[in-house]
Computed example of a mutant assay.
Amino acid sequence: MKALMSTKVGGPDSLEMLEVDNPVAGEGQVVIDVKACAINYPDVLIIQDLYQFKPPRPFAPGSEVSGVIAEVGKGVTGLKVGDRVASATGHGGLVEKVAADYNSVFKIPDSVSFEDASALLMTYGTSIHALVDRGHIKEGDTLLVLGASGGVGIAAVELGKAFGARVVAAVSSEEKAEFAKAAGADETVVYGRAPFDKDESKALAAQFKAAVGPDGADIIYDAVGGDYSEPAVRSIAWEGRFLVVGFPAGIAKLPLNLTLLKSCDVCGVFLGAYAARDPAGNRSHVNRLFKLWGQGMIKPRVSEVFDFADAGKAIQKMADRGAMGKLVVKVAD
């Protein structure tokens, strides 16, 4: 089978399309004929050895796929050959066939396209875990989302509205602001490109404070990091929750006195570790996501579909922070 492989540390141009052996379903696994693979920011990091998990090479990036079950291993229940499914693979998704643990595999409705289905588990899974388990979101909360036009960000916007929050979307351009508004954002903040000097940081904090209102943001969803995090924390509410989701702008360094002054929580969000430690909780979240999707309250926003041969271009666009919504690679018809 064909597989887009990382054989050495590097960027998307270092990936190679290779012929590799077909996987076999081990105990508790299924083999999926991959139809689509969504691209996420960890795909940018993992091929550079910058992600928290470093698989042995050669490996394929790609952390969420959709397709059709081709083989079922021993001990698997509730799934059969021919089922249309989506799976969070962690890595290894940019291949024609992938073996996946059945706990990470979910049936998808016939009405859902493979491209849309591939774009649900990582972004919406991250955001529902972040908002519900870590942010304890409730109706009436004010939610500030940094990086609100990206995959996890736009999912947080939609879920925030579904859960009854007032959502402020922070983005880097007017085009992205319109995209976030179309997803339901109540208000937007357009910020400049870091690095920021002291005055620029204070000015951004003032923008955030004006947008979230005098009581501050009950939840801050930070999918950006870098110089954007401290100004956001300065706009947090008393006993607010600051959710650490990602670092495309770099790992932030927060003055901890701010957490004391606001009596706020800084909460890490790591979907992969959560799903491994609590698969039942993760499955409950995914079931809730499908229900919300069926009710029209959320829908993966796939902005561009790439051919399998151009998967590296999709990862490069993600690295350049040029993506709005989800980028998806079509692996097979």
Results as ranks from 00 to 15, higher is better:
K176H: 10
V189Y: 10
A217V: 10
A211D: 02
A162G: 01
A206D: 15
A206I: 00
I219A: 09
V157E: 02
K209E: 04
E175V: 05
A182C: 01
V189S: 13
G226D: 02
K176D: 05
L159W: 07
A206M: 11
K176L: 10
F179D: 10
A177C: 08
K202H: 05
T188I: 11
G225S: 04
A205W: 05
K161F: 11
V190S: 01
A211N: 07
A177L: 08
A203V: 03
R166E: 07
A223G: 15
A165C: 13
A183R: 02
V189D: 11
E187C: 04
L159N: 04
D197S: 06
L159Y: 07
F179V: 09
A165L: 10
A223M: 03
G192W: 01
Q207H: 02
F163K: 14
E187H: 12
F163M: 14
P195H: 04
Y191V: 08
L204A: 03
A210R: 13
A217D: 00
V224S: 08
A162Y: 08
A180L: 08
E158Q: 15
D218Y: 00
G225M: 09
D199C: 00
D218N: 15
E158W: 00
G216N: 06
D199P: 00
A210M: 03
G192H: 12
A203Q: 13
P195Y: 12
G192F: 00
L204W: 08
P214L: 03
V167L: 04
V157P: 12
G213P: 11
E158F: 01
F196M: 04
V168M: 05
V168F: 05
K161I: 02
G160L: 10
E175T: 14
V171P: 12
A170C: 13
